[in-house]
Simulated assay, not measured.
Amino acid sequence: MHIYRSIIFISSILLLGACNDQQAGKEEDHHDHEESTGNVVHLSNQQVEALNIKTGKLPMINMSDYVESNGQLKVPPQNEARVTAIIGANITSINVIEGDIVEKGKILAWLTHPDLIKIQAQYLEKWNELQYLEDEFTRQKNLYDENVGSGKEYQKTKAEFNSAKALLKSYEAQLKLLGLNLKRIQGGTIFERVPVYSPIKGSILSVEVMTGQYVAPQTAMFEIVNTDHIHADLMIFEKDVHKVAVGQKVVFNVESVDGELTANVYSVGKAFEQDPKAIHLHAEIENKEGLLIPGMYVRGRILTGDQKTTALPESAIARKGENHLVFKVKKRTEEWEFQPVEVKTGFKNNGWIEVKLLEDITDNTEFAWNNAYYILAEMTKGEGGGHHH
């Protein structure tokens, strides 16, 4: 009986030891699992897609200082035109409407008036008269050279010939401005109407007249603008003038275009306007996208330095206590892993924040570019225990 009790006692001790070893093994495995997962957040492909989480490498961004400025879109003076009537006349037809694209020399409208017919008749009369005077001048000159004709008669004919020639040239100049063919008029053709031509290539900005209307000389009929060289005209206040220079980059917004446009400064004004006291800065637009019309309001920033640094969008950074965190990304087959990395933040510029990593990374390391606070919340839940999806 004593031997039997001893066997039972030894068996109990062995069994208890085995249970303790098994429990210790489980705790060690659990500890190892925590060390291998740490604070890594696991999200499924569906979660990442639903949250529209964007990822990418750590970019170098120009985070230098800048000067804020407002202004307008403008075109150079040679790229806009106001078409006026050269002579008082009535409009018989209009060939364009606002928004039409026209080439240089295109007929915009036709004009007619009795004065147009009268000036052609006067020209034709003086042209025929000049033919007679030219022949008479040549005859008198030959007689004078041969000492047969009178010098007085020769001088009189010469004066009449030169006077008629000068008057004819004035008529020719007027008819050329009206766009009429002189050779055809000399042949006897009288034009009942005259064209109004476009002086530049561009689009019709406005039509200021109507069919049948009488337009006096210098009356504005059409406005045309060529936006091929549209640029940003910005106002720089006196306190910032010393910061700007030709060659600097400009980032700006207009209401008609989503996102930002970029430009390069090609001219800085040398004289102040007094109300407000500021100078003009002109910048050539690089990406002429969307609807850009002269006169549109511009809000811009002139980047006054060229210092680039590592940066991420503001939505890529989450604050936990006194620390700022970003999240390294690894793509697995069925899920994504997001691991927190502490960073030091710096200068802010247009939605980007300068970041300095406190640990080394490889060139191929990718980071989450948005939803940092959502990932942080998932990580905080995961710290309560368990592998979180």
Rank of each mutant, 00 (worst) to 15 (best):
I107R: 03
L108V: 00
L108R: 00
A109T: 04
A109F: 04
W110C: 06
W110V: 06
L111N: 01
T112M: 13
T112K: 14
T112Y: 14
P114V: 15
P114R: 15
I117K: 14
K118C: 09
K118E: 15
K118S: 15
I119H: 11
I119C: 11
I119S: 13
Q120H: 10
Q120E: 12
Q122K: 14
Q122M: 14
Q122S: 15
Q122T: 09
E125W: 10
W127I: 05
W127S: 13
L130N: 08
L133C: 00
E134C: 01
D135G: 05
T138A: 15
R139P: 01
R139Q: 07
R139W: 05
L143Y: 03
L143A: 02
L143K: 04
L143G: 00
L143H: 03
D145A: 12
N147F: 09
V148Q: 06
G149S: 05
G149W: 04
S150V: 03
G151H: 06
K152H: 12
K152N: 14
E153R: 13
E153Y: 11
Y154H: 06
Q155E: 15
Q155G: 11
Q155T: 12
K156S: 09
T157W: 02
T157F: 01
K158C: 07
K158L: 13
A159C: 08
F161R: 03
S163N: 14
A164D: 03
K165Q: 12
K165R: 14
A166H: 12
L167F: 04
L167C: 05
L168E: 02
L168D: 01
L168A: 03
L168P: 01
S170P: 00
Y171T: 00
A173Q: 12
Q174L: 08
L175Q: 09
L175G: 07
K176A: 07
K176T: 07
K176M: 09
K176H: 08
G179N: 00
G179A: 01
L180H: 06
N181S: 10
N181T: 06
L182P: 08
L182F: 10
L182A: 11
L182N: 09
K183P: 06
R184N: 11
Q186F: 02
G187F: 10
G188D: 09
V194F: 04
V194Y: 02
P195F: 02
P195L: 04
V196I: 07
V196Q: 00
Y197K: 01
P199K: 03
P199L: 02
I200G: 08
I200M: 10
K201G: 14
K201F: 10
G202F: 07
I204E: 01
I204F: 02
I204H: 02
L205G: 02
S206L: 04
V209W: 01
T211P: 09
G212W: 00
Y214S: 13
Y214Q: 11
Y214F: 15
A216Q: 11
